[in-house]
């Protein structure tokens, strides 16, 4: 159990390449990638869901992502762009978009037609309906998509250490090349912990942001079931 020794060794908790530094790097990549992915996927998904045009593309991209080998995409983009941070980050953004896109699309699409009709009957128009009614009602599924996207990015960013990205994956890849197994195992524990904590934090955020009206016993359960099922599956592409 010498990986525990590695984990508690003070030398690994300060200075270059220390655990806090690698953690900040990993979180930083994840945050940057998610901001870009959300900025692209939420407006696009909302537009497609609102107008109903091109829905099959969204469903196709989310399903196709499952079959796409992330390591292959990473290597290919690094070969195109050269070693550095750009290739891996572009790959991460590409892999982060489909779950958010699918969640937003499904969320907006599945808003109860009677609710939209009621909003129109109250005099709301296109923009008002989208921002005041459709998006808030779609929020559980949008956040569900973001959750599975974040897991995908944390997981793939770990693998991206193989093509030179920093972050917690470095411990696994560097440990492998020097046959330092305690370092590898400690790294894998840190990555797993990060993923679990991030997922729980986002679940908490979901509770906080989603309107209480959507969380009541009956409908809430249905919405949660929808929110976790298809997107969870998409998350397991890495």
């Amino acid at each position: 159990m010498n990986f525990l020794g590695w984990l508690v060794d003070p030398a690994h908790w300060s200075g270059p390449g220390s655990i806090p530094q690698r953690l900040v790097e990993h979180l930083g990549y994840t945050a940057l990638v998610m901001i870009i992915a959300i900025a692209i996927a939420v407006p696009l998904g909302a537009w497609i869901g609102h107008t109903g045009k091109g829905g099959f593309l969204v469903v196709g991209s989310a399903n196709g992502l499952r079959a796409l080998p992330t390591l292959g995409v990473l290597v290919l983009l690094v070969q195109w762009t050269g070693l550095g941070i750009i290739g891996p980050l572009v790959a991460l953004v590409l892999l982060a978009i489909p779950p958010v896109l699918a969640g937003t699309y499904a969320g907006v699409r599945n808003v109860d037609a009677a609710v939209v009709d009621a909003a129109r009957g109250m005099g709301m128009r296109g923009r008002g309906v989208l921002f005041g009614v459709e998006l808030p009602n779609a929020l559980p599924l949008i956040i569900g998509g973001v959750r599975s996207s974040v897991l995908q990015v944390i997981s793939t960013a770990t693998i991206a250490a193989y093509v030179g990205l920093d972050g917690l994956g470095r411990y696994i890849i560097d440990g492998l090349s020097t046959r330092d197994f305690p370092q590898m195992i400690a790294g894998s524990i840190l990555v797993a912990l990060l993923a679990v904590v991030a997922d729980l934090a986002l679940a908490g955020l979901q509770k906080l942001l989603v309107s209480p009206g959507l969380q009541t016993a009956g409908t809430g359960r249905r919405v949660r079931a929808l929110a976790t099922r298809p997107t969870d599956n998409a998350a397991r592409a890495a």
């Binding site: 080998p69 390591l71 693998i159 193989y162 492998l176 592409a237």
Partner: peptide, 29 residues
């Protein structure tokens, strides 16, 4: 879903030496 995910996930194993077709990624890299 499980089969398709599994087929794609195997390739990650090539980073630690066992990845089936994933070895084409590590070798090609």
């Amino acid at each position: 879903v499980a089969a398709v995910s599994s087929i794609s996930l195997v390739t990650v194993g090539s980073v630690i030496g066992f990845g089936g077709l994933g070895q084409m990624f590590t070798d090609g890299f």
